[in-house]
Design a protein around this nucleic acid. Structure first.
Lengths: 127, 127
DNA sequence: CGCCTGTCTTGACGTCCGTCTAAGCAGAGG
DNA sequence: CCTCTGCTTAGACGGACGTCAAGACAGGCG
C-alpha cells in the first residue's frame, strides 16, 4: 500500500442504501461494473448460491461452518474455499468464537445488487 | 428433438412473477440454485454487466450490436461471444432485422434475480 | 452476379476456477 | 504437555473462461 489513499470508489459496498440506479434505468459505468461484477460472479456457482442462502436465512443471522458443510457432497476444504470466495466478494463476514467459525451475510451489498437488477413493476404497453 | 416435452422445470425463467422467495428468507433448493446460478455467472463479468445494462436501458428497449461494440476496447467476436453468453443465460433475446442484430432484455428473469436478492427493507432496532 | 459491411463461428492460447489430498493452525480437554 | 476436533491453507490437476485472428454466413447495393 505505498499509494496514497485511493480516490474513494464511487460505490460503497458497505452502505445500506443503494449505490446506483437500476441497471435498466441508466448505463452502469465501467468502474461500477468492475466493482459489482465480482459479487455476481461469486453468486454464479450453485454451491455458493446455496451457501449464501443458508447463511442469510439462518436463525440469528449467522451459520456455523459445521452446519453448512454436511449439506453438500463436498469436502471441508472445498466448502471453506467457497466461503472464502463469498468473503472476498464482500457478501459475508466470518467470525471465530471458540471452536467454531460463524458466517454472517452483509445485507448492504445484497440490497445494492437487488436494486441494480430491479425492473419497472410492469411493462405498460404504451408510455 | 425426439424427446417428449421435458418435465417443466420448477422455476420458469420466462415468468414475469418471482419464482421463489428471497434468498434470505428461505434456503434456496439445490435445483433452483442450479438453474439461477448461471444467470448470476453471466452477470459476473464486467463487460457483460455493462452490455446487459446498455441493452436494458436502451431507448425502445433494444440495442444494436453496432452500438454496443464500440463502447469497449474489445474485438467484435469477443463482444459477440459475451452476447451469446447472456443469451444462453436467458437474460437477453436477439433478433435480426436486415443488416443489423438487435438485443433485448428479458425483464422476467431480471425480476426473479432481483427478488431473490431482496432483503428486508431495514434492520430496525425496534423489534 | 460480385462485392462490401455487419455479425457469428471456429480454433487456439493463456489464465482462472472447482475440486481433491495433505499439511498447518487454533481452541478445548485430559 | 499432548491429542483431538474444526477450519483454513498449500499444492496439484482437469476443465472452463476470456480473448484474439481468421474464416464463414447473411443481407444490401451496384
Amino acid at each position: 500500500m505505498s499509494k496514497q489513499q485511493a480516490p474513494l470508489t464511487l460505490v460503497d459496498l458497505n452502505a445500506d442504501t443503494p449505490c446506483c440506479p437500476p441497471l435498466a434505468q441508466r448505463r452502469v459505468p465501467a468502474e461500477t461494473a468492475a466493482l459489482l461484477a465480482p459479487a455476481f460472479k461469486a453468486l454464479g456457482d450453485p454451491v455458493r448460491l446455496r451457501l449464501m442462502s443458508m447463511i442469510a436465512s439462518a436463525e440469528g443471522g449467522e451459520a456455523c461452518v459445521c452446519d453448512l458443510t454436511p449439506a453438500f457432497d463436498l469436502t471441508g476444504p472445498t466448502i471453506s474455499h467457497h466461503l472464502k470466495t463469498l468473503r472476498e466478494a464482500g457478501l459475508v463476514d466470518a467470525e471465530r468464537r471458540g471452536t467454531w467459525v460463524y458466517y454472517r451475510a452483509r445485507p448492504g451489498i445484497l440490497r445494492q445488487l437487488a436494486t441494480l437488477l430491479s425492473v419497472e413493476p410492469a411493462p405498460s404497453s404504451q408510455g
